[in-house]
Write a protein that binds this DNA or RNA. Structure first.
Lengths: 142, 142
DNA sequence: CTTTTTAATGCAAATGATTTGCAATAGCGT
DNA sequence: ACGCTATTGCAAATCATTTGCATTAAAAAG
């Protein structure tokens, strides 16, 4: 089974250490993020947070996402269409396959592809700072 | 020298056939696109077009880009940061390496990577409709 | 546990890119 | 040249995200 309880890097501790206040909205958002298996966007996070504390504002969600991104606690993805989507960081690096019909995101990883990317960049005289590999597709029919 | 004159798929003919009017703004924008080696955004295209005919509007640039994209005459890329950038279609498929310092775009292609992508998607039960591979990097120092 | 300090919040207004409604204009078939 | 209607320019509208500011509330201090 999946480990759910210990998989949470203690961001609260890290935030305290950095002199960042642990507020009620931030606690709630952090909880939502760690509870989540999918890749929600700011509006979805806002709605889930509102259900817990209806006074939370969308601005705060955005501000918190930016804060967490800066701490390296989450990754922001600008997939095609509309809003940015987030996922908690901490796992292994991976790329994404987006189901064009459902919006579902499937994570995958290929050392071979990573190596080829490095090789290509090097041959062009560049160092890769980061990259983005997204496959957009539909479930195979048959 | 680069070939400039024959490299232009005759979109005007194609548009006429589709009952689309060849207007002055469209002619100018099409010309800018075929003359261009880089990946300009709508604002850059608008400025280059304005230099030729100052009455052209940004809306028309956007509308024309959408029209051309629909025809398959250009590709739209949503690289990181700000605006979408365009390039005329017609060449071989390729991916992009973006110079984070200059914004320059370098095109590259890897059959191996393409094949691996297909393989991964297949193993996940998906057919790839399209994909996006962008490397963000800086010129190697040394 | 009250006071103090100042970061964080909520709200509304601002941004920035792109799109759209609409009246005026200009392709192009006749 | 004429008329039909697609296309344009302009301003206003969208959409996602950010920001200014007065208020609130963490957490540091007493």
């Amino acid at each position: 089974m999946n480990q759910h309880q210990n998989r949470k890097p203690d961001y609260e501790r890290e935030m305290r250490r950095a002199g960042i206040r642990i507020t009620r909205p931030r606690k709630i958002i952090l909880q939502i993020l760690t509870d989540t298996e999918d890749h929600p966007d700011a509006m979805e996070i806002f709605q889930r947070a509102s259900a817990i504390d209806s006074s939370i504002s969308l601005s705060t969600v955005y501000r918190t996402m930016k804060l967490l991104e800066g701490m390296g606690a989450i990754h922001r993805h600008a997939f095609e269409g509309g809003r940015a989507r987030f996922e908690q960081a901490g796992g292994e690096h991976h790329d994404h396959l987006i189901d064009m019909d459902t919006g579902d995101v499937i994570e995958f990883h290929s050392n071979k592809i990573e190596a080829l990317q490095e090789e290509i960049a090097r041959s062009l005289g560049y160092d890769i700072v980061h990259h983005r590999l997204e496959l957009y597709g539909r479930k195979r029919k048959r």
